[in-house]
Nucleic acid binder design. Sequence first.
DNA 1: ACCTGAACACCGTTCAAGT
DNA 2: ACCTGAACACCGTTCAAGT
Lengths: 211, 211
Amino acid sequence: MSPRDPNPRGARRSKDDVVDAALVLLDRVGLPDLSMRRLGEELGVQPSALYWHVASKQELLAQVSARILAPVALRDGDPDDLERAAVTLGRRLHDRLLAHRDGAEVVSSSLALGLVASPVHDGLRTIDDSPAADVVADAVTHYVVGVTFHDQQRRAADAWGTAASTVALSPESAAAPAPDAFEAALALIARGIAPWRADIGRASDAAAPGA
Amino acid sequence: MSPRDPNPRGARRSKDDVVDAALVLLDRVGLPDLSMRRLGEELGVQPSALYWHVASKQELLAQVSARILAPVALRDGDPDDLERAAVTLGRRLHDRLLAHRDGAEVVSSSLALGLVASPVHDGLRTIDDSPAADVVADAVTHYVVGVTFHDQQRRAADAWGTAASTVALSPESAAAPAPDAFEAALALIARGIAPWRADIGRASDAAAPGA
DNA sequence: ACCTGAACACCGTTCAAGT
DNA sequence: ACCTGAACACCGTTCAAGT
């Protein structure tokens, strides 16, 4: 019951245990309160012990990001044209980010640091190996992550009274677009970019001359 | 010359001085090293003195964000149709974020917390007061901020060797789209969404029944 | 009006040493 | 192989008190 010493006998932890605990703790306390010390406490271990399992907090968060993103991957039965696959992956990414507290912020920085692979890019590349796939993936990923990050931060701020400052807020906090606006924008981004295969980025070196 | 006591006589600081110094320090050391203690040192003042000028570090960063974003605003001579104005503002936002170290990260969180106004939203709303303007502004803002954040983080990581981990990187670090791809994507996002005025978000309450 | 000094309650990370 | 204990070098913020 007590948070200290939940593992009184030799029961050692694996790296997976550490990542699991981090994800659970993230959902309970949020990213700002997810510290190595707090996580150690949760696992009944000194903070320094965590550094046997992971090289740094950033690496730990990258593992957490990978867990969050795993179900986004393209699967059997998904559309196989660029435009519709982009919408499917974007919607799935959105769902996954919303499924965990501060999910968008955690994933955003792991993605930016290149410590986790982007499932949208990976998925769309299997459908279309032209540079257009990356451009669509960029647009969809940044839109979805941006909207979700904004949304989650606002919720957190509203919850803990940080709101009402420089910017005049409408009562409902003006936040994210309504669900149908999100869906519509996602579809339009994909529709706007996907069909456009002209020489987007001849800057890429001669990689796939045949395609 | 010495960083301590550059203000030996009574010379007191204004809030503007503090924000100015924060922006200069940001450019020199980057966001991770921009601490209240370091900033106090730079101003020849105890860290606690800063709290007379700003309520919190977050508020300080919001002021810094406002300075960064100020020149993005729509001005005379700018296009007055939604699609072209969106591209102009997006390009301008990109330039401003790139003009300061970690600009995208600083602005991103101030924007998400609602502590600074979005110049893209404000600008486009003067052109078109339908909900479509907000949807275009969302897409453009999140795309530009996302791409720039990604780009700046990768540069920083590459510079200080954090790269080469989980994800296989191409030698050139695969980073942001080539400049022309960025331009193209921005144009396509605007072109994809702007013309689409159908009932995006009837969720918004009856605000502008005539328009 | 603006600032000092001291304190509170924290951080991530390293590293010798233990089992 | 996995962990402890102690330390290093920091954080943001508060608050009485000074001028």
